[in-house]
Design a protein around this nucleic acid. Structure first.
Lengths: 226, 226
DNA sequence: TCTAAATTTTAGACAAGTCTAAAAAATAGT
DNA sequence: ACTATTTTTTAGACTTGTCTAAAATTTAGA
């Protein structure tokens, strides 16, 4: 993964990372406007950057047709994701930060350039497979361990029962809410009832009953019992 | 110390740090050319930056008269030095890097913005007082623990005997040389002879005899036995 | 002290990354 | 299929941090 030919600016890295993230969740070709919104910038700025990254062969881009990462671009994105998630593990496991406090700091640390550092950090942390939110950590070659099958809580049926394996990162408020209701990775939950008119869920968790809005449910992932 | 009003660019931070370092070793007003050489840049670029940092009240500067840090600028310099040295301890103590390998990585890590991170890192490391090269680590208020009195080896007389308390950081080659001769912080050394014609020293260290050039001697600091 | 040399600043240019406003292309509604 | 709307790109400008070349100031030597 140490394909550190010409090193990228933080801005370039952030674009690469955002394109990767959008490719994972949305279609495989990313529109300029979508990317502009994700980057909190203007479409014209995005167009400029897409040209530059195309020149560097990190993505394919055709006017008016959106963009997609090349294998080289994807490899860089994965190395940034890897660093981000490893640093999050460090912050939570070693420095006792809460899972709601680490995203912003990891956004800075993910740009530190040293594959040796990343690999030693990984070893120091005991080769974790997931970050504090349950997101998988790719290895130095950009490969994910075959992960447990995780399903979105919102897509489960009444009676579904399983273990919380992941929660969405990026919103401290959401994670603080999870702290308040004492939901953690590993919590056992069961869907008691789905309320069809607003999409909310009645959940049993560790002998308590909680109601989740649809929005909350879409941000939680569980592994169903066999 | 968390005077994070408007945060500075990495470039601005690097200037502040360089001015601080030069103030410690040289006179108290730093010339444009000296700073340009230290920053590996041109005098005209330095002039521009000095104006900007003066506007931000981080240094005092008068045309043709050099510059000096204000208390505010000094506080920022100390917070960068603090971060640099704490990260160096982390890299050596926790990730098993050699003292010759950490400077460059710490140069990146020192720009991470989060006083909470710095303070937790410090606690995690057990409140170290010095970095792997023996340089003191200021506390969150920018205050150094009253350090042991360290003298430069080159300024010691024949017969002087003491413990190595510090070596100059910044040149990996020099530190690798020290590795080769097995000199560490804590090594006991004695000056057997000073050769006046070239300034070199004959040294006894742990039952061995070694010759140090004057340049090497100026980069080593010892605490003399009482 | 007066001039020559060195230092420092100014002026103007450039690259990166961003913006606004206007033009071009694509999409959708009828 | 044609126009109206939305999306995307282009053009030109601005900021930051850098450069070169030339002008201004200081320092040092005789």
């Amino acid at each position: 993964m140490q394909s550190e030919k010409r090193q990228l600016s933080q801005s370039e890295e952030n674009y690469i990372k955002a394109i990767y993230a959008l490719s994972e969740t949305c279609e495989d070709t990313i529109s300029t406007n979508l990317l502009a919104e994700r980057m909190s910038t203007k479409a014209s700025s995005v167009t400029d950057m897409l040209k530059k990254l195309t020149d560097k062969e990190l993505l394919t881009y055709q006017k008016y047709q959106g963009c997609a990462l090349t294998p080289k671009g994807r490899a860089i994105a994965l190395s940034i994701v890897r660093k981000h998630r490893l640093w999050e593990v460090f912050l939570v496991d070693k420095l006792q930060f809460g899972w709601d406090e680490v995203h912003e700091i990891a956004e800075q640390l993910e740009h530190i350039q040293s594959s040796q550092l990343t690999n030693r950090l990984e070893a120091f942390l005991g080769y974790p497979k997931v970050d504090p939110h349950g997101d998988p950590i790719p290895n130095d070659e950009g490969v994910f361990d075959t992960p447990a099958v995780r399903v979105n809580l919102a897509s489960c049926e009444t009676g579904a029962k399983g273990i919380v394996m992941g929660v969405e990162d990026g919103s401290p408020e959401f994670l603080q809410y999870l702290n308040k209701i004492d939901l953690k990775l590993g919590s056992e939950i069961e869907i008691l009832e789905k309320l069809s008119f607003d999409g909310s869920l009645l959940i049993a968790m560790e002998k308590r009953t909680i109601q989740f809005s649809h929005v909350v449910a879409t941000r939680i992932f569980i592994q169903l019992y066999a």
